[in-house]
Nucleic acid binder design. Structure first.
Lengths: 238, 238
DNA sequence: CTCCTCTTAAAGGTGCTACCTTTGGCGATG
DNA sequence: CATCGCCAAAGGTAGCACCTTTAAGAGGAG
């Protein structure tokens, strides 16, 4: 699922964190709304310690600030750490889903072509072989219509590409891309059989990466993502 | 400076957080190193509460995990939330600076052209006028050789562009870009007088945004960032 | 004597409570 | 309208009981 089972952040914390996090990101608790530790303790039946530590985490994600005498104030969206995986997750699970998917898809369009180009420069020999292998397998499963296995390979493909770029910030987006890919399938935005062009482009990109042809890899990814964008367009056009 | 004075995260927390955060991101405390609450209390002269809450924050940034009986373990780089502004800040101030600047510059190259294109679609009327105005002022100050004022305008220009894109994830990168711009000047990677091409390209991009010509705006930003990359190359070539 | 399993003790985070300090919003008072 | 003082709510400290996990030690089997 990608989004944390932080070992150590034990059940109580994560319950409170999850509840408040999704209420804030969904807008249910609007910017300017004020919470107090007392009310949190009471509502969730937790001690002050848990309430405080949870607030610290929310604060560090930019979702709230806390001030003496005032309480804990929900922050406006601009202050959120929108790259925090948990924030992304909450928004995807809540009412902000279409907007979040749009942002993420635009981000993919920006990043993945350059990541492919960088991977063509920086990937290890093993990674180069692996990515070609993945693309071939995707074709096999795609043509066989095994959609769920195909999805996992798709995730593996994009993850590998981002991580092989040698840029840790690109690499850090791998989990996010995985969420988008899975979300797209869940929302029924995937054709029953992957379109042949997409299969071709995955293979083309993979071969270009293996051969060290950065420009070609970039171009293939650009085309691939243009298709992705077109497929997701209906989601936010209405 | 962009990087937090979180109002509320009062002095003690931020002292401990800052010290440990930069020690971890600099590699001084390597992955696998184990801390305990007791030692943190002792070292910084803070109570257990402060130590615990600080650890929670570090945990939520992916820098450490905490487990019973074991203690608090420093995580490897792959687990860090590298988009967290504080992590970026620590790495820029510490020994990882060149690598971090390289990652960030690649990210800019990926994102800013698309942000410009999106801004040409989505910016408000006021924003369109403002960006052209900023570009013009940049030319004036640049030609006059007033480098520090120029820098502030440069920051304002790129910030506005990212925020006007209508994509909050792009917008969230504005602070990061500002840090990079300032860092570049500090490191003496800027010419004494901004190169004329850069001034031209800022104006070209601004006009394209105002006129709603997304493709032109994107192309201008792409050229602009190619120059930026070339200027920063020496930093990581050695 | 060696190796394996089982028990047990200690370490260290988790969670709770109680209590004091500091700050800042707000009403009352001049 | 400026000042003062009250008090709510977070900041910070202290200490306890509990739960997990690790690792050392003890005992038995081969």
């Amino acid at each position: 699922m990608g989004v944390g089972f932080e070992p150590g952040a034990e059940v109580r914390h994560s319950t409170v964190l999850d509840a408040l996090g999704s209420e804030i990101t969904s807008g249910e608790l609007p910017a300017g709304h004020v919470l107090t530790l007392d009310r949190i303790q009471e509502r969730f039946g937790v001690s002050r310690t848990v309430a405080r530590e949870t607030m610290r985490i929310l604060e560090s994600m930019g979702l709230v600030t806390s001030r003496r005498r005032v309480g804990i104030t929900v922050q406006p969206r601009e202050a959120w750490n929108v790259f925090d995986p948990r924030v992304i997750w909450w928004r995807l699970s809540g009412s902000g889903r279409p907007a979040q998917l749009r942002s993420l898809t635009e981000l993919r369009i920006a990043v993945e072509p350059l990541a492919a180009s960088a991977a063509a420069r920086s990937a290890s020999a093993a990674q180069r072989d692996h990515i070609v292998h993945l693309a071939a397998e995707m074709r096999a499963l795609g043509e066989a219509g095994r959609l769920d296995d195909f999805l996992e390979l798709d995730v593996a493909f994009h993850t590998l590409l981002l991580r092989a770029s040698g840029n840790e910030m690109f690499g850090a987006l791998a989990d996010v891309v995985a969420v988008v890919l899975r979300g797209r399938t869940q929302l029924g935005l995937m054709p029953h059989q992957p379109v042949p062009e997409a299969l071709d482009l995955h293979e083309e990109a993979a071969r270009a990466v293996r051969a060290g042809r950065g420009q070609d890899a970039e171009a293939a990814m650009r085309k691939l993502l243009a298709e992705v964008r077109d497929a997701m367009q209906p989601l936010w056009d209405r």
